[in-house]
Computed example of a mutant assay.
Amino acid sequence: METWQLLILALIQGITEFLPISSSAHLILPAQLLGWADQGLAFDVAVHLGTLSAVLLYFRNDLFQIARDWTLNSVGKAPSTLHSRQGWMLIWATIPAVVFGGIVSVTGLDDAMRSIAVIAATTLIFGALLGFADRRPNLTQPLEKLTLKQAMIIGFAQALAIIPGTSRSGITITVGLMLGLTREAASRFSFLLSIPIIVAATTLVTLKLVTSDVSVDWMAMFSGIVVAGISAYLCVHFFLAFINRIGMMPFVIYRMLLGLVLLGVLFV
């Protein structure tokens, strides 16, 4: 692909990675509508590194406290704290997605599901579920009150995001809202929960890149990291700043329109 095309896709990935609108649905549109070539493994590594850098930087204070208290509690046998409990929640909630993702990858189902029909259906279905969850009363539970059971339920929901178009952030936020979390609490836990998954995905794709004979345009890759990282950081910042005021309905409406566009691409 041309460098400018990669940068546009990096911008799309950075913006859509953490919004509940499905990055996979957006990345397939340029190829289908404009005939762009496949972006390749190097691009996948670049954008994953960019979005990972963004979320690590944004939640650096939270992550430091979680890592510190979890280590002291697990190794040093220090008393349990809020942050050490959050560390265990993130670990246990990540396991379902890792197991399910591994099974899908080994069986080759991930490639089979990357179709416009699947993405259009999941965009519409899970968009409607997000709208239903956002309209429920009593969305009052703060993140500090999240239980291990609730975290595991969100973790099992995250495993569904292996299906293209579902949106990892969308499904985890949806289930968080259904459990009674505030919009901000559901979103913050969703973003924190993304970190181990992005690390795993980046590692897997990097191994594929290293073992392949694909040539790498290092300047384009570096540019992709920067563009995806900056756009993802700004996206997370403004999303958390305004989500309690605007709610999820703008994203629900957008998903409905996007799903219809994908159906149009499929049948026209």
Rank of each mutant, 00 (worst) to 15 (best):
residue 3 T to C: 06
residue 4 W to L: 13
residue 7 L to D: 04
residue 9 L to T: 04
residue 12 I to Q: 08
residue 16 T to R: 03
residue 20 P to W: 02
residue 26 H to M: 03
residue 27 L to I: 07
residue 32 Q to H: 15
residue 33 L to K: 05
residue 38 D to I: 00
residue 47 V to G: 02
residue 57 L to E: 11
residue 65 Q to L: 15
residue 71 T to Q: 11
residue 81 T to A: 10
residue 83 H to G: 13
residue 88 W to H: 14
residue 93 A to Q: 03
residue 93 A to S: 14
residue 97 A to E: 02
residue 101 G to T: 10
residue 106 V to G: 04
residue 106 V to L: 07
residue 107 T to R: 07
residue 110 D to S: 09
residue 112 A to W: 08
residue 115 S to C: 11
residue 123 T to M: 10
residue 132 F to E: 15
residue 136 R to V: 07
residue 141 Q to R: 14
residue 153 I to T: 10
residue 154 I to H: 00
residue 156 F to K: 00
residue 161 A to F: 01
residue 162 I to V: 13
residue 163 I to V: 15
residue 165 G to L: 03
residue 168 R to W: 02
residue 172 T to D: 03
residue 174 T to A: 08
residue 178 M to R: 03
residue 181 L to Y: 01
residue 182 T to H: 02
residue 186 A to L: 06
residue 189 F to V: 08
residue 194 S to L: 07
residue 199 V to N: 10
residue 201 A to Q: 04
residue 208 K to W: 08
residue 210 V to S: 10
residue 214 V to C: 04
residue 216 V to W: 07
residue 225 I to F: 05
residue 229 G to K: 04
residue 229 G to M: 06
residue 234 L to H: 03
residue 240 L to R: 01
residue 245 R to T: 15
residue 250 P to F: 11
residue 252 V to K: 01
residue 252 V to M: 09
residue 253 I to P: 05
residue 254 Y to F: 15
residue 259 G to L: 02
residue 262 L to N: 00
residue 263 L to R: 02
residue 267 F to I: 05
residue 267 F to V: 08
